[in-house]
Design a binder for these strands. Structure first.
Lengths: 228, 228
DNA sequence: CATTGGCATATGGTATACCAGACATGAACG
DNA sequence: CGTTCATGTCTGGTATACCATATGCCAATG
């Protein structure tokens, strides 16, 4: 079974991809890697400089940049330059809200479509956390995998794609979220309830739990995370 | 009072769009206009031919096509050609499901955020339909406007953007949906209930009604609409 | 000293030439 | 007659040259 494609997509590059695709991936991970919300962050990009550093021509690079532009990661404005986009806090909150809508629908779908393999996977991702001492940051791999498992169990691939796109942006605040012990503990408890609801096939409950779980994150970000 | 305009007339724009943007729009509407599910539909595109017909060079056209590719409207395969994508029925159903998730969330948000203007707008779009004899096809302008009004009332712009993207694809089946009198009548009744729930501020009810309303459409398409 | 006009320059936008891979065709060969 | 392989042609991919405009510097001017 193929997991939802994650940001950690293994690079199966046989060097056979088009330069555009490689430039796209390189740019994307480069932007994701840098902390764009640092005051010292350089938000301006230079086509010619980039093409030189990548060792490719401007044409494929421009196509990659155009894609990033449409994705909202970058803004290219004529005769001015290319700028890395800083999402406003309001936009981040909107994204988390959309996330809540989609994942809660996925949970609902999971109640109808999830097979034994999906259920087993969900348990595998929640049961080990009886020991609360484990790290479970908001964006820890374990947490992300859990949410992806729900989406996968729902069986609607489009939901996975959209959320992947959102995560690309939301992850920018991962360094700014405060990992609080209470939140982690609560989060684990939420997860267990969600799995139970899905296993029971209670669609309304599963949807409600997932929605509230994610909206709790939204409210937390709204209150405690500062985004310039 | 008529202020003499002190500054010169506002400059609407002077053809200031980039060729890429214009090619993008042209391609998009052209694809939307043609019935891509006709057997006789030509699904193959030719870069050079298109560039000649648009009267532009291949570079901006390619950028436009790359955007359409990412949007899923078109698929460009290296050394093979550019193909208009036919969405499978399963993909269409997934899209409607996502639609349901997002619009129901918008309805929930509307219960918190909708102002008097939004409520008034919703009434304006539903009250005239006491006369059921009106045409209200699944994709009639009136119906679309109603759903857009809900999304607008929710105040989450991202939801609107995503749904716009989906609608671009889903509209392809508009010609294939059967307009049944009963469905139209039921649809109008649903709309009225939804407005009432939002006006009352009952978020859970509004969300549920919108979700069920849209999932009804999904089931209808699933059962009655054939997509090659 | 302030203002303004022009020119240099840096930026992205566009056009064009050339490259390599994938198919189709047809002739040569068994 | 059938198979195979060479070659022509069509495709998108890439590189490069050139173009238009936004900006900033600087000098000319009042």
């Amino acid at each position: 079974m193929t997991m939802q494609k994650t940001s950690l997509t293994i690079n199966p590059i046989g060097e056979s991809q088009s330069l555009k695709a490689r430039a796209y991936e390189a740019m994307k991970s480069a932007i994701a890697a840098m902390n764009i919300y640092d005051d010292s962050a350089e938000l301006r990009l230079d086509e010619r400089d980039l093409s030189a550093r990548f060792g490719i021509s401007r044409t494929p690079l421009r196509e990659a940049l155009a894609q990033l532009d449409q994705e909202g990661l970058v803004r290219v404005v004529a005769r001015r330059g290319i700028f890395i986009v800083r999402k406003t806090k309001a936009e981040i909150l909107d994204m988390i809200t959309v996330w809540a809508a989609l994942e809660s629908m996925a949970a609902r779908l999971a109640c109808e479509n999830a097979g034994p393999a999906n259920i087993k996977e969900l348990h595998r991702l929640t049961d080990p956390y009886d020991d609360v001492s484990r790290q479970l940051g908001e964006y820890s791999d374990a947490n992300i995998r859990f949410h992806q498992a729900i989406i996968h169990a729902g069986g609607n691939a489009l939901i996975g794609e959209i959320i992947d796109g959102l995560f690309l942006h939301v992850r920018a605040i991962r360094n700014r979220t405060i990992i609080e012990k209470d939140r982690a503990r609560q989060s684990i408890a939420d997860h267990k309830k969600i799995v139970a609801a899905i296993e029971k096939g209670d669609a309304d409950l599963a949807e409600q739990l997932v929605r509230q779980h994610t909206l709790k994150l939204r409210d937390h970000v709204k209150e405690f995370v500062e985004i310039p």
